[in-house]
């Protein structure tokens, strides 16, 4: 109980310290608020701009969720194909790497050319950022099957399909979920970057990336900071969701989750 309380108090103290430091720096340096707003100005801006920020966050989450789902879905099946045979892996893996190496700032205009400004491009960019960790981790999971378990399936005269269903997919699950966790942290960032590079403001309303540009050009720095705060919250919600899924699927059996008494 005491340890638990402490685990809340420690970060809270650090947080208060950091905020105090922020005030101190602002006070001593005397910079104007459009360079460095104080924490209360940021909170006030967040409140004043709440309707804009909420709709921006909704828009961005849509891109993040769709891009994330695409990354996870495509990544999983691609990994299954790569794990299925070393030959397929050898033929395709280098090009997946090439795709991953391609900076998203270069891909973005291409997507805009193909898909136009807006959601489809944002989803595509999010997908590009998130799918590689899923593929890399999941492929690893499909490839590293316990040899003894494989022999068990051999003794059972299991078909290839049965082996995939009852051995390879569950065995790859921890790896897949690790990839999913990384994709989960990247997806909101991907959607924001996507919005920044390829967003459109339908009806004067954009996503978080778009609002960043808008607030910056108007030198509404406190609102810009508030946008950052909102992006953080979105990120936490995303990671929380993925962590929950991770826990849900593994806590009963996987070493990383199981409490040994």
């Amino acid at each position: 109980m005491k340890a638990r309380l402490l685990s809340w108090i420690q970060p809270a103290v650090t947080g208060i310290g950091l905020i105090a430091l922020w005030y101190l720096i602002k006070k001593i340096s005397g910079v104007p608020s459009f360079i460095l707003p104080s924490p209360d100005e940021v909170l006030r801006a967040a409140w004043d701009e709440r309707s804009v920020l909420i709709s921006a966050v909704m828009l961005t989450s849509r891109g993040a969720v769709l891009g994330f789902l695409a990354a996870v879905g495509v990544g999983f099946f691609l990994a299954m194909a790569l794990g299925f045979s070393p030959r397929i892996k050898a033929s395709f893996y280098p090009y997946i790497l090439v795709l991953q190496m391609m900076p998203v700032t270069i891909l973005a205009p291409v997507f805009v050319l193909w898909l136009g400004q807006g959601l489809p491009s944002i989803v595509a960019i999010t997908f590009m950022i998130g799918f590689f960790p899923v593929v890399a981790n999941t492929t690893m999971g499909f490839v590293s099957v316990d040899r003894n378990l494989q022999e068990l399936f051999l003794m059972c005269k299991a078909t290839r399909g049965q082996e995939v269903r009852y051995l390879r997919i569950p065995g790859a699950m921890p790896y897949f979920l690790t990839g999913m966790k990384i994709a989960g942290t990247l997806a909101p960032i991907g959607a924001i970057v996507g919005d920044f590079l390829a967003g459109s403001a339908q009806g004067g309303q954009g996503g978080i990336g778009y609002m960043t540009i808008a607030y910056f050009s108007q030198l509404k720095t406190p609102a810009l900071f508030a946008t950052g705060l909102t992006a953080c919250l979105l990120g936490f919600v995303f990671v929380g969701g993925v962590n929950w899924l991770h826990w849900r699927l593994l806590h009963q059996w996987h070493d990383s989750m199981v409490k040994k008494e």
């Binding site: 378990l149 068990l152 003794m155 569950p170 059996w253």
Partner: peptide, 17 residues
């Protein structure tokens, strides 16, 4: 003849999930 046989492995070799 695999249908007639079964193998008990050195470690129990259970599926952990």
């Amino acid at each position: 003849a695999r249908e007639l046989m079964f193998f008990v492995f050195q470690d129990a070799n259970l599926l952990p999930w």
